[in-house]
Design a binder for these strands. Structure first.
Lengths: 253, 253
DNA sequence: ACAAAAGTGTTTAATTTACACCCATGT
DNA sequence: ACATGGGTGTAAATTAAACACTTTTGT
């Protein structure tokens, strides 16, 4: 119940527990993941960069959820996004890559400590947030979900697991909101589902199904300047949307 | 990939990470949870015992999943049961109860260390396993899920969360197998669903639905000695059952 | 005029739901 | 004989799936 303060009174880090954040982003077309560049290449001779999930050790006095918020903010500047815990990873042999150890030595007080990491994911509208890399992140960039660069530690596995969770969750909870602009078209919403489920959906069936749920309210406004018939904008009725979330929603098509 | 050895080469415990196991048991009628008696009462003047989930710190060289197996075995004698991780809990203020601190002092090298716990659950047939309490567990006993005794730490919350997960999972993965005898009747299977979902189901609809999935194979054998029409026994076709698990199973009624 | 996405209905099949009586056994 | 759970079918309503053409705009 203690309020979250970004500059904690007890800034000691717990050497054994970290959090990692898998931030999925939707850009209207494709699904992306946010990765940080920790300023390393696969090998000295190689130019290919190694990327990693935004993550770090938790503080001694810090809630896990709060730690995830803080770490994400410190590395990427993202804040006020909903993070959901989806699993913990703790292979004692996850330190197999040369560059991982090297990197830990450069930033950790106890680079050899056994670390288990609690993983969080979120899905946001990629263009709605500004990313500001800082701390040990040289840069933070969106990567297409099916063209990932080399990743440190077991981060490939963590992303895979997060994606499975995301696909799964999207079947029994309506997607929405956080992911789309205030006003959006049904085409955009459909593309979102298609990107996440990686299938194609029937337009008519999709519309009928999603409209029947009645958490979408049509606006008077339409698209302008598009080289085709302008689509009507919709918005979410947040109340109905929330109550649908608790329903036995199950999305098929 | 290292094989699991119960007497690990590195028995040092990681002071900051524990595992807890929520073992649900079905006795043919009701849903239970396995709790250990750590030999304490709520207060000195009170006789009411405090119970806890089987759980303990992980070892430094030990996988999380293996740690859960080991700890469960050490405290309850249960082995070879499928454990599924469902969440991590790490409230830094979870040490609010007098008896919890007192108890930690009696068994931990660093009783004040911040601990985050990775929680696992399983669902087994209660009467199929023998429980042998050992280590710091004075006893290990089944408690009815809706009549829980006082619990240490945040274990009430963890159980609640596990139960939510269990109800949820049972809707999109066929329950079965591990939970019922080799041969079982459809009545037993239905009771299992009813216990977990805490609803009543229509017998005819239940049968139709579950039989259509065709992972149940009817046996020639029937019940004997029951004071009513003897029910046919069924068993699982494990192959079809497994392939159903990967399907888009969704259980409604 | 053309390209591009929006918008719109119907038919068929499958699934879900509600519902009530007889059967085989042990006591 | 009675109590107990086993076993069975049907009709009505709902939902899912497949499918093609017209509309509106910008270029």
């Amino acid at each position: 119940m203690t309020p979250f303060t970004r500059t904690s009174s007890d800034a000691r880090l717990n050497p054994n527990v970290s959090v990692d954040c898998v931030i999925f982003g939707f850009d209207g077309e494709r699904l992306k993941v946010l990765l940080i560049d920790r300023g390393q290449s696969v090998s000295d001779s190689d130019e290919e960069k190694v990327y990693a999930l935004p993550g770090n050790l938790i503080r001694e006095d810090e809630d896990l959820d709060k730690a995830a918020e803080r770490v994400l903010f410190e590395l990427t500047g993202l804040e006020d996004i909903f993070l959901e815990q989806f699993g913990s990873f703790g292979d004692p042999n996850r330190l197999t890559k040369e560059h991982d150890l090297e990197w830990l030595k450069s930033i950790r007080a106890e680079p050899d400590a056994r670390v288990i990491t609690v993983a969080y994911y979120s899905l946001i509208r990629a263009d709605q947030y500004e990313i500001h890399a800082s701390s040990f992140a040289r840069d933070a960039v969106w990567h297409d979900i099916d063209a990932l660069p080399p990743l440190g530690f077991d981060h490939a596995e963590i992303i895979e697991s997060a994606l499975r969770e995301l696909k799964f969750k999207s079947k029994y909870q309506p997607l929405g909101f956080e992911l789309l602009p205030e006003k959006f078209t049904l085409g955009q919403l459909q593309k979102l589902y298609e990107a996440i489920l990686s299938t194609e959906l029937d337009k008519r069936n999709f519309r009928r199904k999603i409209l029947k749920m009645s958490f979408l309210v049509p606006l008077k406004e339409k698209q302008i300047g598009v080289p085709h018939k302008p689509a009507r904008y919709y918005t979410f009725d947040k109340e109905k949307y929330q109550s649908y979330k608790s329903t036995d929603f199950y999305f098929t098509l």
